[in-house]
Amino acid sequence: MAYIFKFPAEVRTNAQGNQVLANFHHYCISLSDVWVTIDWSGLNYMDANLSAVLLAMTYRLKKERGLKFFLNAQDLKGPLSIFWRNGLAHYIYNTNKKPDDERDSTIPIKAFKIADVDKFAEFIERDLLKHRGLDNVKFTDKEKVKGSYFEIFNNIEIHAKTQAPLFACGQLFPKQNQVIFTLVDLGVGFLHNVKAFTAETEKIVKAEDAINWAIKGNSTKEEASGGTGLKKILFYCMKNNGKFHIVSDDCYWQFDGAINHTRINNPFVGATIHLIFSYN
């Protein structure tokens, strides 16, 4: 029997796009030790930063379900050739080749051990902020953006409770002066920790409430003296036309000028964070 998951025409960094990826994971999680075809024959466009989500999913499915994945190379043409350049296709095919960036818009995909601060810092500073596509961005803006990614990394290191790697990928949109960067962990998600921590107080039991609680600066770690990192990122986004999306448990939480959340069916594990920054 052939196992094929067909992607729709478009997958973007929003709740609908996340649902497509969650559906892919849900389709695969009931299978074991078989090949699954990732069918992109009808896919015209996918945000390249979502490679981090797809790689996290295939990593987990390979490890826990023994699955192998097939992508038809014929589908990786035109706008989808970016998935060669950012390295996703190399990971799927196990080519052991490095990402091959020939254009201004590509940021390579990368996996990190969760405490490997130096590799993460090097990735942010060299592959992202020194990218030729960001040459015209002011130093102070780069420092703010870098600080935001490090705050997220710290948050994951504290809360994810997993030894599994962290996956990162970005994409530059030079015409829109925008950079999207996505970080995915395979940890316990926001609700697990917040629910336990608030069991005697606010009794938070829903994912959107857990994310709201964290984003307001609360922390489940006494020694952290308050989780101000996420709060500062949100404030920076408010002041600088940024967007901040968090996907955890069954919630797609987003700040795009206002806060909204969308329920995700068959959610993936851990947390996915998208930061979308605009620059002049």
Partner: peptide, 18 residues
């Protein structure tokens, strides 16, 4: 140092002040 976060300062300086 080349980079820091608020989490680092809270854990070090915040806790020493506490």
């Amino acid at each position: 140092l080349s980079n820091t976060t608020t989490g680092f300062f809270h854990a070090s300086i915040g806790n020493l002040y506490r």
